[in-house]
Design a protein around this nucleic acid. Structure first.
Lengths: 250, 250
DNA sequence: CCTGCATTAAAGGTCTAATATTTAGTTGAC
DNA sequence: GTCAACTAAATATTAGACCTTTAATGCAGG
């Protein structure tokens, strides 16, 4: 605790000289501790699956109060770096953050900024062609089966907007997953729900558009089956820009 | 509080029938409150700049303890949905989450999963061509000036690896900013530092590669100046895939 | 032997209440 | 009028108690 107070004091000490300095960040106790623990984790001294000391021990060794310790643990938990379990033999276990952490953050970003439809479609247009190319390059047989299955589901549901859009979403996500690139998967998962919501409208999916979508999806699926990266990318690019232009006109 | 206990009890009530159900999520008091407040915010009943009730009021109206209320506020703060200020007239003010929230999350994801270099470069390869295209389409004069400035800085620092890479990074980010697409900017900011770290190596940037990089950067800058989206995209695509292949060989 | 129940211990979850610190306004001396 | 001291209102932190959950343990009865 004394340690902490010193840090505080140092931060607030007057800059008596004429140094121009930006706004001073005053960290809270919990943040300081969280930073230390985070450093231990990403620095590799604590690895996946290890247990953190329990709250009371941390309280002692840090010199902070239990509330502050708990605040720090909550932060790490929200960051997806630890998972906390109640009960005997419970405690905080280190774990690698999953894609869901990214998805939550980006989803909040999108919905609270009311990101425009065009921005979403642009972002999708950036990710999907590359994802399709990588899928064609790296797909396994299970990946392919999944993609074909989702495509079939969409074709079967072409007359039902909900089923059609659901199948559409699933097909796109199956392709991105087949890229085996965690970052692209996370980004795409983050925006796909928003894209779904924003295109969930009868007028944005008239029958002739659906027909065309199904046709090109089929061709892309084939290109991935044949493991033709360039073709998969080219077709996917045409597909997303075509739909973007269609949206732009409506 | 009584309310909360009821929820708990309901969650644990025996499913007397033979329903198969997944692992039961047991929310904590603070989470429940956080969810309610988050809903108020993203649902639009509280908008950017509004003040939340202070902690004691929330304590009263929620029936929870102050610790739980504070836990909830901390969560929202970490999500970037509120900013809390100490002191008189302090409190929690609603704010839109910024890109930095995404950047932090994704950076943690990358570093704690030890994401492979190739994945990073693939993700960059997805984002940048589209960003270049959008930059050519939507750039302002200030955007262009900034891009040209960063390009000049890189050229000037071509013999100093640090300056070269720093200029490289800045140029790429300037282009992405000129796309005026918040999602692409956030994604690119998230990975650019990692890409920088991962390519910060003399052997990955021999003189002849630097020369070539500068040349094509110049052409891309020109395409953006001339507002030629297709050309900007084509060149950027060639640029990133060329570097990806160079990395793949080394 | 093994099943099932009660007990217990260890951990996190919650509540209360007090104290410390920060910050914006207010007042008063000059 | 201006600056310093004071005051009030808010969050930050601490302390300690009690509650709830969970797993291990032990024991009784099959």
């Amino acid at each position: 605790m004394a340690q902490y107070r010193e840090q505080m004091a140092a931060l607030k000490s007057p800059a008596s000289s004429s140094l121009k300095l930006g706004p001073v960040k005053i960290p809270r106790a919990a943040e300081v501790l969280a930073n230390q623990l985070r450093e231990e984790i990403v620095g590799g001294r604590l690895s996946d699956g290890d247990m953190l000391p329990n709250e009371r021990e941390l309280t002692e060794s840090s010199g902070l109060s239990r509330s502050s310790v708990r605040d720090a643990l909550r932060m790490l938990e929200l960051e997806g770096l630890i998972a906390t379990k109640q009960g005997r033999n419970g405690g905080s276990r280190v774990c690698k953050p999953g894609r869901d952490t990214i998805v939550k953050t980006v989803s909040l970003f999108i919905s609270s900024r009311r990101t425009r439809r065009v921005s979403l479609v642009e972002a999708r247009g950036a990710i999907e062609p590359t994802a399709a190319m990588l899928a064609a390059k790296h797909r396994t047989d299970e990946d392919l089966a999944r993609i074909q299955e989702k495509h079939a589901a969409m074709v079967a549901g072409i007359d039902d907007l909900d089923r059609f859009l659901r199948g559409n979403l699933d097909w796109h996500m199956a392709i991105v997953h087949a890229s085996h690139n965690d970052l692209l998967i996370a980004f795409m998962e983050s925006i796909s729900h928003a894209v779904y919501d924003v295109t969930n409208d009868e007028t944005l999916n008239p029958p002739e558009v659906r027909q065309q979508v199904v046709r090109i999806h089929g061709r892309i699926t084939d290109a991935i089956e044949k493991q033709d990266p360039a073709e998969a990318k080219r077709l996917m690019e045409r597909h997303v820009t075509a739909y973007a232009e269609f949206l732009g006109m409506s």
